[in-house]
């Protein structure tokens, strides 16, 4: 899923400062699962905004609404009947959702309430960890299901570097060393011979480095 963090409240209030009629838009997908921008978080943020405005005696009217999926133009269109009743749209979706809404309603000022941070998975309740960088050329077969491009701080393909200690990355004791995990798995699977292969220089043109990427499936286009 895509994981995000809510922006600091102060920053949000600064963006909303000149506006009284606010549409607060959540998303039912990833940001709901990672508890940052679903219906629940929309309600909490709306309440916080109201409390803050009440305290400062500045009127506000907030419409709380959560879309099935903000990154899909079909769902984005579903709010067209009331979007014009509001001066600003503040989206709690990931950057993809914010942009879809902004592209759908070009005359509207659309601002983000969250900082989109990574593609990751849930490790336990309340803990999410980055797992994939979308490099466009997956090597998880060679590294037995642990991505060094993402999970090694230096994206080393022939690791571990000299900073791996006690299973942790040199940058932070709470960050597991991806290469320690890979080696543990290689041993467990009796596949240590894979470790001796030198991973060649990677072709990064399939990743963001090759420029913004587009995927097209002609058979699905209408």
């Amino acid at each position: 899923m895509i994981v995000a963090n809510r922006k600091p409240f102060e920053e949000i209030m600064e963006m909303l400062k000149p506006y009284k009629k606010i549409l607060l838009l959540g998303c039912n997908e990833c940001v709901t699962v990672c508890s940052v921008g679903g219906a629940k978080e929309v309600a909490v943020l709306a309440s916080e905004i109201r409390l803050s405005r009440l305290k400062n005696i500045i009127p506000v009217e907030i419409k709380e609404h959560t879309l099935e999926r903000q990154c899909d133009p079909e769902y984005a269109l579903s709010i067209s009947s009331f979007v014009n009743d509001y001066e600003i749209i503040i989206s709690m979706a990931c950057g993809c959702g914010v942009q879809t809404i902004a592209e759908t309603y070009r005359e509207k000022y659309v601002v983000p309430a969250v900082n989109t941070t990574f593609m990751g998975s849930s490790e336990e309740h309340g803990v999410w960890r980055e797992k994939c960088q979308g490099c466009g050329n997956c090597i998880l077969d060679k590294t037995l299901g642990i991505c060094p491009v993402t999970r090694c701080a230096k994206s080393i393909l022939n690791g571990p570097c000299g900073g791996s200690q006690g299973g942790s990355c040199e940058i932070n004791k709470d960050t597991p060393c991806a290469w320690q995990l890979i080696i543990d798995r290689l041993k467990q699977m009796n596949m240590m011979e894979k470790y001796l292969e030198i991973q060649p220089v990677k072709d990064w043109s399939t990743s963001r480095d090759g420029g913004p990427r587009t995927r097209i499936r002609e058979d699905l286009r209408i």
Binding site: F9, V44, E48, L51, K55
Partner: peptide
Amino acid sequence: SLLEETGI
């Protein structure tokens, strides 16, 4: 933490 940031 929420009440702190909202000034309550």
